[in-house]
Design a protein around this nucleic acid. Sequence first.
DNA 1: TTTGTTGCAAAGGGTTTGCAGGAGA
DNA 2: TCTCCTGCAAACCCTTTGCAACAAA
Lengths: 143, 143
Amino acid sequence: MRQTPQREGILRVLKDSDRPLTVEEIWERMAEKRSGLPTVYRNLERFVRQGWAESILGVDQVMRFVRCDSRHHHHHLQCERCGRTAEVDACGLEDSLRQLEALSGFKITAHQLTLFGLCARCRASAEPGAERRPGEAGHEIDR
Amino acid sequence: MRQTPQREGILRVLKDSDRPLTVEEIWERMAEKRSGLPTVYRNLERFVRQGWAESILGVDQVMRFVRCDSRHHHHHLQCERCGRTAEVDACGLEDSLRQLEALSGFKITAHQLTLFGLCARCRASAEPGAERRPGEAGHEIDR
DNA sequence: TTTGTTGCAAAGGGTTTGCAGGAGA
DNA sequence: TCTCCTGCAAACCCTTTGCAACAAA
């Protein structure tokens, strides 16, 4: 896989963001060397295949991308207000899954879990007028 | 909400299927009184809002719809081979969530969990050549 | 009769593709 | 040099919308 300014740009944008971004947001943030939208799509797809990025579906049904820090099994916690996400390492689901297998007859091979809520920050600063949706700009540390 | 043959048709198709269906699949199965695709979209949206149906995203990233049997909190088990789903009542996640809240500082307000695997049936009849993906025809009982 | 619903066709919007030119290695 | 990658524009496809005709209640 070749190294190109476009690819570096995409990965940089993802790295610099603390929340998942839509394809268009990524594209917009590639200030210096903006590439074509198709290039962003094509590379994002590869990054996901390679395990360098991950796509997650927001509450608003929009697909967003995050840099994938940990290769191992994990899940995402998404703040409903600012859109920031946190990775959750352990999922503590294993026991429940074994139980379910016995109950349902299914052999469970994979699961997908997304958690929604309020991050510590937004929880603290619950000032009115601060409501935001995932996909909108977050706090001052946004970008 | 008025009762129309189109609405009855959609609900009937959903009820007769043991696996989630795409909008187009639902539309195709409304044999007698086939409606326009927009009508299917419009009603499906309402049914979901009303809690009569539920949309679930497959491993293939395609949205499908199921009749919603239980109004209470539940999750879906999807068979990767035949596409059939089962509803799981308890999710046994509650304890883990409390732990996570303490750990992450998040106040978890909602979660979305989908389980993938092999249903009892497909597990038993693991004959080669029987591979199917969600969205393709299932077993003989498919319709 | 009133008002919600349908069907059609057209618009919309995000994503993908084809292809020729360009640039990593 | 040889591929792989990019950019552009066009094609796609699923979904939504506008509007007039229609049918529940």
